[in-house]
Design a protein around this nucleic acid. Structure first.
Lengths: 360, 360
DNA sequence: GCATCTATTGTTTCCGGTAACATCCTGCCG
DNA sequence: CGGCAGGATGTTACCGGAAACAATAGATGC
């Protein structure tokens, strides 16, 4: 199961000059240079893509690289250049779909750009934990630091931290302003509310995520704005913590005083919990009450009933965050965000409001 | 939102000798040595915990470290020692709870041991992707490599790869043998089967995970063994891919030929999908048929109905994997695995078999 | 045909640590 | 009081690359 010693490859009688019982140290550019009969600098230049190398020389070096199975030592490279090909990513405990998919998308994007993403998971609402993690991360001279989820604590820690490298906090939406990007990411929620309004719902209830998360605030504001735009009425906002349990408790906490005919949860997990609580209280979904979520986690289509929700492209969020950071690192203008629009997925958890014409 | 330049801290008139408009390069041990009036080697020794330093000198150096805010450059250290304080972890796309919690547990354990965990996510069933990732990872001279999920492709790639460092594949159970650890991790499934048997179920159906995962095979074998031990009957095994969709299709694929009175899915997502399919076919859960899962994802308790399942300690699995690897890296005997036992969580998705006395 | 230019390649130095070896004081002993 | 064992520090070399600078060569210009 485990391979420890590189071992003596069967190919004996190799062309190596004197390296017989060598302990198989990884080859360096000096080794390559010797084999190719050039200076180490020529090898270095070739590796960095320098053009002015005679084709003949180039071939010799390439052969030597191939023969020795050379692999660059990034620690050495990072030492001289002062830059490393790694990005630190702080994310909260990735036991939820959203954050983990964001991390995944970021990881892939980073890898494509030749970077390795160091994912550090931590309790985003614990300031001490955040600072410890930052301390650790800053030793590993990174090219940049990314926060893949935006909470108040994280924002504060970032502002206090003395990174000497670019840093970027990926927020679903900028807290203060409604810039272009934010409009894109929130475009879905109005569609969801409109969908409910079209079904005849007039009074809604929102179950929000943890208030320290900017994404939770963002979604709540978008909900309120959409409700106002469509001249609907909101019974109010109940705060959860993103978990199914909190969604359940949000409903039971109402103690039966449910006026809304539709519940919009800030994520699918809370919608799930809410549905269970509603069912237990005798409500039929969607006949008596509609429930919708946000995220479209893979399981959402298999809830009972399948959940109407907004599909959020988490991978794109992660990719976008990496590109923003890389823009800072390498000094280019990052491409404008793409794929961040969310999409309404209509399933059976939403239906005509009770008492409406279309009560089939 | 973003902090770029370290900036001039307000504390002007600092005691710095000549560094006025310096571009704020991070201090090195040489800087510290100069400030403390000692040689850089003394600083290095202190940092590495060497004892024989005169208390007076030690104090001076400590003060200098403090004053300059020295932070070691791990790239440089790794370059000379040949060892780095980082571990590479390969995991498959962490959009599922299990893998991501394993990664989380591993990350925390690694951090506690002073290592940083480089998480590389990839498609575990794509041999090319695995090799690309390994290639990338091996450049970042790591102290060790960990595979946090065991698939056939991963095992093969690991055996073919020429790591020059310790490597470890975390498998839920050793494929070939039934050693002590494996007994611990599979202890729960017999309990689950016994629970169903106790409710009067005699014929069961298993929905297994992807066959390339050793965890899927492990769980299937444990299922079959437990069924045999209790003299029950298995309608058979249907293979899914861990997703809710595949659980749904596992049931619809039966085309109504369901003989079992209880379905045991290899994870909670597939159990969820199966429950929806069964409900749509008119079965009541648990009156007509019982359904159980494995994992106890946070949402499992809020399915409709709440799911009986086995709680698996993923974080412990991750922690354990890291400890095994660290044992190899630092040459100590790793502590025996702890916390790997799973626990039966009984909820409303399982009930007395139809036709049994206790049909309330 | 010789000097100059420039394409190509080689040398040296440095990055920030660690390791190995050298040196400088002490105190202690004969 | 010289010698010496160590303890406490200092010096030098090295890790594997990259950058700055130097040098060699063939090509070109006049």
């Amino acid at each position: 199961m485990v391979r420890e010693t590189p071992g003596e490859t069967a190919k004996a009688g190799s062309t190596d000059p004197a390296a017989e019982g060598a302990p198989a140290k990884p080859p360096t550019i000096y080794d390559v240079a010797r084999v190719a009969g050039v200076s180490h600098q020529t090898v270095s230049r070739l590796l960095r893509g320098y053009e002015g190398i005679r084709p003949q020389t180039k071939t010799r070096v390439m052969d030597a690289l191939q023969e020795l199975g050379y692999r660059p030592n990034l620690a050495a490279r990072s030492l001289t250049t002062g830059r490393s090909q790694r990005i630190g990513a702080l994310t909260h405990e990735i036991d939820q779909v959203g954050p983990s998919k964001i991390a995944q998308g970021a990881s892939v994007a980073a890898r494509q750009a030749g970077y390795l993403l160091d994912i550090v998971t931590l309790d985003m609402s614990n300031a001490d934990a955040i600072n410890d993690a930052l301390e650790l991360i800053m030793q590993h001279d990174l090219a940049g630091v990314l926060a893949l989820a935006s909470t108040d604590e994280m924002t504060q820690a970032f502002e206090a931290a003395d990174f000497r490298v670019p840093a970027y906090i990926a927020a679903e939406e900028d807290d203060a302003f409604s810039n272009r990007r934010s409009e894109l990411t929130s475009v879905g929620l109005p569609a969801l509310i409109a969908h409910l309004a079209g079904l005849g719902h007039r009074t809604l209830l929102h179950i929000a995520g943890s208030t320290t998360y900017s994404a939770a605030r963002n979604r709540r504001r978008a909900y309120e704005a959409a409700v106002a735009d469509l001249s609907l009425h909101s019974q109010g906002v109940v705060y959860g913590d993103w978990s199914a349990r909190s969604g359940y408790e949000a409903i039971t906490g109402l103690r039966g005083k449910l006026e809304a005919t539709a519940v919009v949860a800030a994520n699918d997990q809370m919608a799930l919990g809410a549905m269970l609580a509603l069912t237990e209280q005798g409500y039929r979904i969607p006949e008596d009450i509609s429930v919708a979520g946000i995220d479209d986690i893979p399981e959402a289509g298999y809830f009972s009933p399948p959940l109407t929700t907004l599909r959020v492209n988490f991978a794109a969020q992660g990719r976008n965050a990496v590109q923003q950071l890389l823009g800072q690192i390498e000094g280019f203008t990052p491409p404008s965000s793409t794929g961040l629009t969310s999409q309404l997925i209509t399933r059976r958890s939403t239906g005509p409001a009770p008492g409406t014409a279309g009560h089939k």
